[in-house]
């Protein structure tokens, strides 16, 4: 796999994390959006899962097709960014539901 595609996979992963976090929070704060996900995909959670794959695929395709950089791929930087994305996303989701429970 060439460096552009690995970079694209890292960006796609981070974009999928951002989508999961934002769609989770927005669906809890906006009932019609949650309802739309549920009616379209059978369940709001299924909708978030399928759409996160779509987001990953679109971002992966965009960066693989449009990136002109063919320099060395920095695996550590990609892993660090993806790792921080997962940790921060997880903390945001947990704190949001904690806040929702106690408010």
């Amino acid at each position: 796999m060439n460096p552009n595609r690995l970079r694209a996979a890292g960006n796609g992963t981070i974009a999928a994390f951002v989508f999961i976090v934002l769609s989770t929070l927005y669906a809890e704060l906006n009932a019609p959006f949650k309802g739309l996900l549920a009616t379209t995909f059978g369940h709001h959670w299924v909708g978030k899962g399928i759409l996160s794959i779509v987001v990953f695929a679109l971002v992966y395709y965009y960066f693989s097709a449009h990136s002109s950089s063919s320099g060395k791929f920095d695996s550590w930087k990609a892993a660090r960014n993806v790792g921080w994305g997962a940790v921060l996303g997880g903390i945001i989701i947990f704190l949001f539901y904690l806040w929702e429970f106690f408010k």
Binding site: K48, A79, A86
Partner: peptide, 16 residues
């Protein structure tokens, strides 16, 4: 609620 949503991160991490 946290588990069902954070779980969605795992297949992407596995893919990386």
């Amino acid at each position: 609620e946290t588990k069902e949503h954070v779980f969605l991160f795992l297949p992407f991490l596995g893919l990386m």
